[in-house]
Amino acid sequence: MTLESVLAFCALCLLLELTPGPNTFLVLRHSLHGARTGVATALGSAVGAVVWATAVAVGLAALLERSAQAYQVLKVLGGLYLVHLGVRTFVRSRRAARGDGPALDGGHGAGLARAWRSGLVSCVLNPKVGLFFLAVVPQFVPAGNTVRGTLLLGALEAVVALTYLTVLAHVAARAVGWIRRPRVTRALDRISAAVLTAFGVGTVVSAR
């Protein structure tokens, strides 16, 4: 694997990260509670990318490609999870607006663990990530080195995603003073809820 191909692959990964997706909105949402929470979400997403790279290396994603039913099931599960996140965000925003409960989820440690899980599950249940590794990664993997090359490129994709999402989390957290204004917080929570729900509904519908 040449340096040129590695740099080209990293540039492609960065371009894809710059396209807003569910993980971007999850990181922004969790960053409202601090940079560490946003970074935890980013780390979960990066681990999810490594999980997909490993799955592709052992042939699981090829099964999804051949089995339309398995692919549809995964898309529906991923879509329902995003809808769940969107609805939960909206309900928590309404409760916080009425003063019925805090905007944050549990203690600091619980919040970090929950943020990490949301990033991980969102990425693992996103079949488009698997198809990226299945369709794009082989173009950069040297012949005869499929498993090791796929895992290496998976690690590189995870590093690129983690770096970009970490920067995003810190930028969002620096603006937290303005963002934490009650009116702004409610608006951002509801926008985030709407976007996540829309992503989820669109994923479920496209699986039909």
Rank of each mutant, 00 (worst) to 15 (best):
A35W: 12
R36C: 01
G38C: 04
G38T: 00
V39G: 05
V39S: 03
V39Q: 05
V39R: 10
V39H: 06
A40P: 02
A40C: 09
A40K: 02
G44R: 02
S45W: 00
A46I: 03
G48I: 01
G48Q: 05
G48V: 02
V50R: 02
T54R: 01
A55C: 12
A55K: 04
V58Q: 10
G59T: 11
A62P: 00
L63D: 04
L63Y: 09
L63E: 08
E65A: 15
S67K: 08
A68C: 00
A68P: 06
Q69K: 06
Q69I: 10
A70W: 12
A70P: 04
A70I: 06
Q72L: 03
Q72G: 11
V73T: 07
V73C: 12
L74N: 04
L74A: 12
G79N: 06
L80H: 01
L80S: 10
Y81W: 03
Y81I: 01
G86T: 04
G86D: 08
V87W: 13
F90I: 00
R92T: 12
R92A: 14
R94Q: 13
A97I: 00
R98V: 05
G99K: 05
G99R: 10
D100H: 11
G101E: 13
P102G: 08
P102R: 09
A103G: 15
A103N: 11
A103M: 05
A103P: 05
A103R: 11
A103H: 09
L104C: 08
D105A: 15
G107E: 09
H108P: 12
G109M: 06
G111C: 10
G111A: 15
A113V: 13
A113L: 14
R114T: 14
A115G: 07
A115Q: 03
A115S: 15
W116N: 04
S118F: 01
S118D: 15
G119W: 03
G119N: 12
L120C: 12
V121W: 09
L125A: 05
L125G: 03
N126V: 01
N126M: 09
N126I: 00
P127S: 08
K128F: 13
K128C: 00
K128D: 05
V129N: 08
V129W: 11
V129L: 13
L131V: 15
L131P: 04
L131G: 07
F132S: 07
A135P: 01
V136E: 11
V137P: 04
V137L: 08
V137S: 13
F140P: 07
F140T: 11
F140L: 08
V141K: 05
P142R: 04
P142L: 09
A143Q: 14
N145A: 15
T146G: 11
T146K: 03
V147L: 14
L151F: 06
L152F: 15
L153H: 07
G154C: 10
A155Y: 02
A155Q: 03
A155F: 14
L156M: 14
L156N: 05
V159Q: 02
V159Y: 04
L162N: 02
T163N: 01
L165F: 13
A169S: 09
V171Y: 14
V171M: 14
A173R: 03
R174N: 05
R174V: 00
R174W: 10
R174I: 00
A175H: 06
V176G: 12
V176A: 15
V176E: 14
